[in-house]
Design a protein around this nucleic acid. Structure first.
Length: 319
DNA sequence: GAGTCGTGGTT
DNA sequence: TAACCAAGACT
């Protein structure tokens, strides 16, 4: 089985001329990156951070914003962000609070702090240029195993195993017949890396293609197997699309610290939007009635640096 | 490895 | 409608 995959990977893109690739009668499961890439060239979305003129900073900003966040919700904040801060230097020149405010309601506002810190690091350590090595990218705040490789592939067109939840799902389904919904692992990256085209540019395109395929066709909830553009080779479909045996733990929300933190920060952020730089502590009581939890969450926001204590009030950092 | 960290649209 | 969940990172 493994040797079959290697053979496919060694000749990823057949020549445009000549007869179509003969489909082997029974090759077992295969990822089929060439077919996925052909589908992508025709059906992939035109997203602003995919524009040829979008540089590495644009890719980095988009990837951080897209962490656990749908594309549709990112589009507007991304546009405003890039217009205001077209370079890491521009963002680094402003206080972190400006980034938190501009983050708006994207969620996980610590990402805004990390992106601001990453911009500062890029300015200080890399002369304002987003680094192009894995180790240097991983050293940036908010950049993990996925995002680092996404920048390498999508911005610098390098051969890197970009495995997010979408890619992980496609790999698991087609090659292993599973759909466990678990996050990507190093083993997933190793598996994909062995299947990527040898050429950097082609590997980069294939990486974008498989991610898009997972986002649009081989989706988590309702995969459109009936219109799957790929020929046979999906072990998941062949085995009756088995569902996950281990149900994912439902994430609690009502009454959690996350909800309270969100309300607290929203009060200060909304005030900043109205030009009010500070919020007196009593004004935060409306966020949550229970004082112990409210205070605990306020302290955690201060500890994170999302808020700063200023006498009897709080404000966004640097405002 | 399991917990934590936002938000709002979808089913 | 309550549950689900969408391009992860960090501790």
């Amino acid at each position: 089985m493994t040797s079959d995959f290697a053979a496919v990977a060694a000749h990823p893109v057949p020549p445009d001329t000549g007869p179509p690739n003969p489909v082997p009668p029974d090759t077992g499961p295969q990822l089929n990156l060439p077919a996925i890439t052909r589908w992508f060239r025709r059906h992939g979305r035109e997203l602003p951070w995919r524009h040829p003129d979008a540089g590495a900073w644009a890719v980095l900003v988009s990837e951080v914003m897209l962490q656990q966040t749908p594309v549709a919700r990112v589009l507007e904040p991304y546009s405003s962000w890039m217009q205001r801060w077209p370079t890491p230097d521009a963002l680094a020149a402003e206080p972190a609070g400006a980034a938190v405010q501009a983050w708006g309601r994207l969620g996980y506002p610590r990402r805004a702090l990390r992106l601001h810190a990453a911009a500062a690091a890029i300015t200080e350590r890399h002369a304002g240029v987003v680094p192009a090595t894995l180790d240097e990218l991983l050293a940036l705040p908010g950049v993990g195993e996925y995002t680092a490789r996404a920048v390498l592939a999508f911005a610098y067109r390098r051969r890197a195993a970009v495995v997010d939840t979408n890619v992980r799902r496609v790999l698991q389904r087609r090659l292993h017949g599973n759909d466990d919904g678990r996050p990507a692992t190093a083993a997933d990256r190793a598996e994909l890396l062995a299947l990527l085209p040898a050429q950097h540019e082609r590997a980069a395109t294939a990486s974008a293609a498989i991610m898009e395929f997972g986002a649009l066709v081989c989706t988590a909830r309702q995969p459109d197997c009936g219109h799957c553009p790929l020929p046979a080779g999906c072990l998941w479909l062949a085995t009756g699309r088995p569902t996950a045996t281990t149900p994912r733990r439902t994430q609690a929300w009502a009454g959690t610290d996350r909800q309270v933190r969100g309300r607290l920060l929203a009060i200060v952020r909304d005030a900043a939007d109205r030009g009010v730089g500070q919020v007196l502590l009593p004004e935060l009581e409306s966020a949550w009635g229970e004082p112990v939890q409210r205070e605990r969450c306020l302290q955690s926001l201060l500890a994170d640096g999302l808020l700063v204590r200023s006498g009897p009030a709080v404000r966004l950092p640097g405002h």
